[in-house]
Design a protein around this nucleic acid. Structure first.
Lengths: 145, 145
DNA sequence: ATAAAACCTAAACCTAACTTTATGTCAAGA
DNA sequence: TCTTGACATAAAGTTAGGTTTAGGTTTTAT
């Protein structure tokens, strides 16, 4: 059993954030001794899941829903699985999106590298040129779809 | 030359957002004819760059700074290049982070798949087991670093 | 026993990035 | 010419995800 201060250190989360999560229903039925929260293994695991779901882009409200399902036993397994499947798809799409952004950034880095080399931005248009390296050309085309 | 309404359709951005961007200094020196904004090629390209920089996680203030540099000529090429290099690193790190999240999500999907199959969550602990498929085991270990 | 540190709540505050509202001007078609 | 729709501004409102503040209780160390 941990106090809120110990958990705060374990997860590098401000105490105020942990209280906020509790208030929002992310730690259902947390035990209290004379008003003071006692974090057990269940809450620690909940916080690990919260961390993951937050990183995957889920909102607090939806995480609350998930935690609610967890208190409802095995009847909600399919719902919980579906949530993770949905988030998996979301994250996969986000990674794809970011790879395109990365290609445009690569192109821009090359572009300014050239511009600095010959001190004239105007020489370069925003179009593929014959002297553009093959990987940059590819990045350019990919990012301009 | 386009009106704000036409640009709104081109970029699928509300008119109010375009006005907001202008107010925040993201479209420096945009031409106006009797008070009405005229979007030229410069503004269209600016909006493409804004789109990319936003997706890469940059704040409006920083994008404003970049647009300011663009009005200051070749002296700011190195600063602009540096900005793109920084964002490139940021996005690369974000992708790496998301790949870890993905591994945890994969593990959770498998976990609930098993739990549904034999109707008992308690059978499964949050630890690698011998019957865990190799790729899931890998995902698990990766996500629990 | 007492003081400091850690805990508690409710409510106000904060920030980013927009959006809405209220009010007014401009331009193109009937 | 008149009306309607697109444009304009300033200022207030919105949302998420917290953080801060004010005022009080509990625990811990001396």
């Amino acid at each position: 059993m941990y106090t809120i201060g110990q958990v705060s250190e374990m997860f590098h989360l401000p105490v105020s954030t942990l209280r906020y999560y509790d208030k929002e229903g992310l730690l259902p039925n947390i035990e209290r001794v004379s008003g003071i929260r006692k974090f057990g293994e269940r809450e620690i695991e909940a916080l690990r899941v919260i961390e993951c779901l937050k990183k995957s882009g889920l909102e607090i409200k939806q995480i609350k829903q998930f935690m609610q399902w967890c208190t409802e036993g095995s009847a909600t397994y399919p719902k919980r699985k579906e949530l993770f499947e949905t988030q998996k798809k979301q994250v996969e799409e986000e990674i794809e999106r970011l790879n395109k952004v990365l290609d445009m950034l690569r192109f821009k880095c090359w572009y300014y590298g050239e511009a600095i080399r010959d001190g004239n931005e105007d020489r370069l248009s925003d179009l593929p040129t014959p002297d553009m390296p093959e990987d940059i050309r590819k990045a350019y085309l990919h990012s301009h779809q």
